[in-house]
C-alpha cells in the first residue's frame, strides 16, 4: 500500500522552509527584548547609580518584586487562554484582610484561609468565563469591584499584624535569601514546569490558540479554564499574604491597588501575546524584574512616583505595539 502511495505522489509543493536568519526583527524583539532591556538597565544602574551593586540594594529589589512576580505568573496563565484577570489586586486585599481575622487560630490556618479565599474568587471567575461564557474582562472587572468592597468589609481600616509566624514569613531568610524570594522562585519554577511538561499546560496553550479546535479535539475546555482562573486567584492571594507579612500590616483600601496593571505589563513585556496560545514564564519573570528596575531607577534618581506611573503606561503601550506589529507583518 505504501508503494501505491509513493507512486501517487506527484508534484507536491515544497513546504515553506522556516527561514530564521539571525536578524533582529519585530518577532525577535518580542521574544528577547525583555532580556536585552533588563541587562541594559542593570548595566546603566551599575555605572550611574551610587551603591547599586550592594547586597542591600539588590536584596531589596528582589523582595520588592515578589508580589508582582507571583501575580504576573498567574496572569500569564490566564492570558495564555486568551483571557485576562482584573481582580488580582482585589484578591490580594481580601487575602491580606483575612489574615488578622484568622490569626487567632494560628499562622498556618490564617494563611490557608487567605489563600483559599483567592482560590474561591478564582473559581467564581473561572465559572463565569468557562461555563457561563461571560467575557473575561467583564467577569473579573465585577469581581475586582466587589472584591475590593469585600476586603474593606473584612478589614475595615489598617490593621497591624504582630504574629511572629507571619513576621518571620515576611522578614526571615535562609542562607541569606529571604523566604519571600524563595517562594517566588518556587512558584516560577513550578509554573514553568506546568507549562512545559504537564498535560494541563499543553491543553491551556491549545485552548488559547484555537478554542473551537480544542473542543473538537475532545479537550476539557471548561475544566482547564476554571483551573487556570483558580490558579491565578490562588497566586494573587499568596502575593497578598506575602505583601502583608512583609509590611506587617493589612490595608484593604490600598493593598494590591493597580496590581492588575503591573502584572499585565510584566506578562506583555515578557512576550506573552494578549491573543493567547502562548505562555512565557521566564519572560514574565524578566518582565516583572524589568518593571521593578525601571521604578527603582527612577526613584534612585529622585524622579517622583507619578512620573514612574506614566513611564509604566508608556511601556505597556509600547510592548503591545511591538506585538501588534508582528501580527500585521504576518499577514
Amino acid at each position: 500500500m505504501s508503494e501505491r502511495l509513493a507512486m501517487r505522489t506527484p508534484a507536491e509543493t515544497p513546504p515553506k522552509r522556516r527561514t530564521r536568519p539571525r536578524r533582529i526583527d519585530a518577532d525577535w524583539i518580542r521574544r528577547n527584548g525583555v532580556y536585552v532591556a533588563l541587562v541594559l538597565l542593570l548595566a546603566i544602574n551599575v555605572v550611574f547609580t551610587d551603591n547599586f551593586v550592594s547586597e542591600g540594594t539588590l536584596r531589596l529589589q528582589l523582595i520588592q518584586v515578589v508580589p508582582v512576580l507571583i501575580v504576573a505568573i498567574g496572569m500569564a496563565l490566564v492570558i495564555g487562554t486568551e483571557g485576562i484577570d482584573l481582580s488580582v489586586g482585589a484578591v490580594m486585599a481580601i487575602a491580606a484582610a483575612l489574615i488578622p481575622l484568622y490569626i487567632g487560630y494560628g499562622t498556618l490556618v490564617a494563611v490557608l484561609v487567605a489563600v483559599l479565599a483567592g482560590a474561591i474568587s478564582g473559581l467564581l471567575a473561572g465559572t463565569l468565563v468557562g461555563r457561563v461564557g461571560v467575557q473575561p474582562i467583564i467577569a473579573t472587572l465585577g469581581i475586582m469591584v466587589a472584591g475590593r468592597g469585600l476586603a474593606n468589609l473584612f478589614g475595615g481600616e489598617i490593621k497591624s499584624i504582630r504574629d511572629p509566624g507571619i513576621v518571620e514569613l515576611g522578614s526571615g531568610s535562609v542562607l541569606g535569601i529571604p523566604y519571600v524570594v524563595l517562594i517566588a522562585a518556587a512558584v516560577a519554577a513550578g509554573a514553568w514546569f506546568l507549562v512545559r511538561r504537564s498535560t494541563y499546560g499543553r491543553r491551556l496553550v491549545a485552548i488559547g490558540g484555537n478554542k473551537r479546535a480544542a473542543e473538537l479535539a475532545g479537550l476539557p475546555v471548561r475544566r482547564v479554564l476554571v483551573t487556570t482562573y483558580v490558579l491565578c486567584g490562588l497566586l494573587a492571594a499568596l502575593a497578598g499574604v506575602l505583601l502583608a507579612a512583609r509590611s506587617q500590616a493589612s490595608d484593604p483600601t490600598k493593598l494590591g491597588l493597580l496590581m492588575e496593571l503591573s502584572a499585565i505589563t510584566a506578562v506583555v513585556l515578557g512576550g506573552t501575546p494578549l491573543s493567547g496560545g502562548q505562555v512565557r514564564i521566564a519572560g514574565t519573570v524578566a518582565g516583572a524584574l524589568l518593571l521593578q528596575l525601571i521604578t527603582a531607577t527612577l526613584i534612585f534618581h529622585d524622579i517622583p512616583d507619578s512620573t514612574a506611573q506614566i513611564a509604566q503606561a508608556v511601556i505597556v503601550v509600547a510592548a503591545v505595539y511591538v506585538q501588534l506589529g508582528r501580527k500585521k507583518a504576518r499577514r
Binding site: 473551537r212 479546535a213 479537550l219
Partner: peptide, 20 residues
Amino acid sequence: AEGIIADLSVRDNIALAVLP
C-alpha cells in the same frame, strides 16, 4: 477555524487529541 492550532508545532497539533 476548527482544525489546526496555527501557533503550535506539527508535533503538538498531532498529539492534541491523544494527550490523556
